[in-house]
């Protein structure tokens, strides 16, 4: 286990998440893609922390990343609920209100 291998794995997770976030049509699946991208970020930050500068402040940064992920999920679920309630939509293509 080296910094390079950890970063490679993080890059793989980030790229898979990016593919999902771009290509998926269902709102929840797009959120899953975003989650996977943040998953890669968490791992990369943890790797940097351990291999480069194991100071407690790095762990605090990780807590901030996890908090951002929680906020994304909570508001994402709420918006998906609103979309579903408003026009029975669960696909991103059906939610073009702001582009009209």
């Amino acid at each position: 286990m080296t910094l390079q291998t950890v970063l490679l794995l993080a890059a793989a997770l980030f790229s898979i998440g990016l593919y999902g976030a771009i290509s998926q049509q269902v709102v929840v699946m797009v959120m899953m893609g975003l989650e996977l991208m943040i998953n890669g970020l968490i791992l990369a930050a943890a790797g940097f922390w351990w291999f480069l500068f194991p100071h407690p402040s790095g762990q605090v940064l990780l807590m901030v990343i996890i908090a951002a992920m929680t906020v994304e999920m909570a508001i994402g679920f709420a918006v998906a609920t609103l979309l579903h309630r408003d026009h029975e939509a669960d696909m991103t293509d059906m939610a073009g209100d702001l582009s009209e």
């Binding site: 970063l7 771009i22 290509s23």
Partner: peptide
């Protein structure tokens, strides 16, 4: 069963480019 994707090829290309860039940086 479900498969609901759009622009699959472009998305795959974008993800591959991002992975190669990040991997090159890491190595």
């Amino acid at each position: 069963p479900m498969s609901m994707v759009h622009d699959k090829r472009k998305a795959l290309a974008a993800a591959s480019v991002v992975f190669l860039t990040l991997a090159a940086g890491a190595l």
